[in-house]
Amino acid sequence: MRHPLLLAISAFVVWSGAFLTIYAVQATGCSLDWQSGNLGAWTSPLRLLLITMMVASVAAVVVILLRQLRPRLKAPVSETSSFINGVAIYVSIAALFSTAFCFTGVVWLTLCSA
């Protein structure tokens, strides 16, 4: 019964989860000294890990958005459910942009303070 509302925000829930984990991994990585040790020319294990996480979370949000965009052919669409679906799509687009935008820093900014 409250599922439609929860589904509507799922993309942003992913964003929140990604936010917490990426921040936590970054802090833990710095404290365990994962940033040093070079993998190739420019990157460190920690940076690589963070980039992977960023890409994974963007992918997860994309999947959610695609599912919401798929037209529902079954059950006759009531005004209410099309409303909720519409809101859900807007929210997921916002979440997609946020996920792609918030974590770009992991690619090039200073990882740990000295």
Binding site: Q26, L50, A94, S113
Partner: peptide, 21 residues
């Protein structure tokens, strides 16, 4: 507070984004 720049960037980006809604 001495938090690494990359961590600050998450929060800075989100702070900028919140202006959009």
């Amino acid at each position: 507070g001495g938090i690494p720049h990359v961590a600050l960037s998450f929060f800075s980006a989100a702070s900028a984004l919140v202006a959009v809604p």
